[in-house]
Nucleic acid binder design. Structure first.
Lengths: 98, 98
DNA sequence: GAGGTATATTAAAATATCTTTATATTATTA
DNA sequence: TAATAATATAAAGATATTTTAATATACCTC
């Protein structure tokens, strides 16, 4: 991207990922998932986001390959499936001195 | 953010910055500026973006403190003013193996 | 299988963002 | 100062995203 930006395509790809992360609720969800897998209900309570919204964000991120889910009874556990996302979250932590 | 996310505020702040970066044209502009300061016209040609759009993106990023400008005759040179943005761009480069 | 809990889906309404077109400003040069 | 080049601004139109509210599905327990 910086060395060889002959590629506008690459900017499009990166921007697409950033678009998903550029939302306080989704970011908040991912930060929670960074530490451990969690159910929809736990995220709902932990992030203070409505159930449909949590579910919608998770569905979106699952389709994008960022998170994955596994069902256990009538709970569904979500976790971060893409290691690149973890690295990005760590960068944000450093850059923003959180 | 990952250690102590008691702060939803922090997610909002990070998301606000990411929102600006989450656009292929703006990302493309910043990648060009990463190497050296450039005029609006150079960015227009180099990124293949219309003049008003380049100018609008730059104005937005200037107001957000990401870039700064200096006039020289009737050219205006833009450069990245926020070191954090450089670090983020470097992270993207690493993560996405550009 | 009825009732309850957890999660997912849908669709409409509200907002925000992007793009385009036209025009304005600033500075230079002749 | 008229003409031109470079940049900025504004406003309308087009799209996309977010939010909310209602409803559906899946699974468990009794």
């Amino acid at each position: 991207m910086l060395g060889k930006i002959t590629d506008y395509r690459m900017c499009e790809q990166v921007a697409a990922v950033l678009k998903t992360l550029a939302h306080a609720q989704r970011l908040s969800i991912l930060c929670k998932l960074y530490r451990k897998e969690m159910t929809v209900g736990e995220l709902e309570a932990g992030c203070g986001i409505s159930q449909p919204q949590v579910s919608q964000h998770l569905t979106r991120m699952r389709l994008e390959g960022i998170v994955e889910s596994k069902r256990d009874g009538n709970h569904v556990y979500y976790s971060i499936s893409d290691p690149q996302i973890r690295v990005l979250l760590e960068s944000f932590e450093k850059v923003f001195k959180v």
